[in-house]
């Protein structure tokens, strides 16, 4: 199996090349093209131990889909193309099993079968990030596919970094984060338009996205017709 990222411009997609019998898992509905020898199925049990009805419900709290889609290659070599919703990069994160990866709301697209896809409850802190009250937790060995709104920048945090809400894609679980105010006082934080920010501390990698999806949504939203 080989994952190719097609990133000619601002709208990257992933092309997963599979040999006979190989399987790949993605969030439900992420497939946009495939060779006709790919068998598509849906399941609540993607890979690892994260299955069942409860797993599906927990994933919904993490801003993901209830179901996973699975793709199995039959006969000769085949391919599956996966595309996220918004414009932006897709990235393969190699997981060696030493650290867990936490994906924030909606950034998970797919994974190889050796990875466990679970959820981790974040509570109020997760909610304040502007993401969701639960994040996707990835453990095990394999390749993880994530998407972002805009460019993905990998930052090695060595002591501390402040990130605006809506810009975090994924991070290694060796990092801790807390929600706090952007400026020294609450009034200034509010007036600056930044409000709440996330402070990451510890050592590890954080993957940030160049643009903020909800900011884009609130810019384009008012120009659209009313919803019923």
């Amino acid at each position: 199996m080989h994952i190719e990222t097609l990133d000619r411009g601002a709208f990257s997609s992933a092309l997963v090349k599979l040999s006979s019998g190989e399987r790949f898992v993605s969030e439900s509905g992420a497939m946009f093209r495939c060779s006709s020898n790919i068998e598509i199925d849906v399941t609540t049990k993607g890979s690892g131990k994260s299955g069942g009805l409860l797993g599906g419900l927990k994933r919904m709290l993490a801003g993901e889909n209830f179901f996973f889609s699975t793709y199995t290659c039959q006969g000769e070599d085949g391919e599956v193309g996966l595309a996220p919703t918004l414009q932006g990069e897709v990235k393969v994160i190699e997981c060696d099993g030493s650290r867990k990866i936490i994906c924030t709301g909606g950034s998970y697209i797919g994974s190889t079968t050796g990875l466990n896809i679970d959820t981790k409850f974040q509570g109020l802190k997760g909610f304040l990030t502007g993401e969701s009250i639960s994040f996707v937790e990835v453990s095990g060995q394999g390749q993880l596919l994530v998407s972002a709104f805009g460019r993905i920048v990998e930052i090695d945090v060595t002591s501390a970094l402040t990130i605006d809400t809506g810009h975090v894609v994924a991070f290694e679980d060796s990092l801790q984060y807390s929600a706090g105010k952007a400026a020294s006082g609450w009034v200034q934080s509010f007036l600056s338009g930044e409000g709440i920010v996330l402070k990451f501390t510890g050592e590890g990698k954080v993957y940030v996205q160049s643009h903020n999806p909800s900011e884009f949504g609130s810019t384009i939203g008012p120009m659209l017709p009313e919803r019923s």
Partner: peptide, 13 residues
């Protein structure tokens, strides 16, 4: 206002 994406710790706004 609101354009900051990420920044060093202890930045003054």
């Amino acid at each position: 206002g609101g354009a900051m994406a990420w920044m060093s710790d202890r930045m003054e706004l």
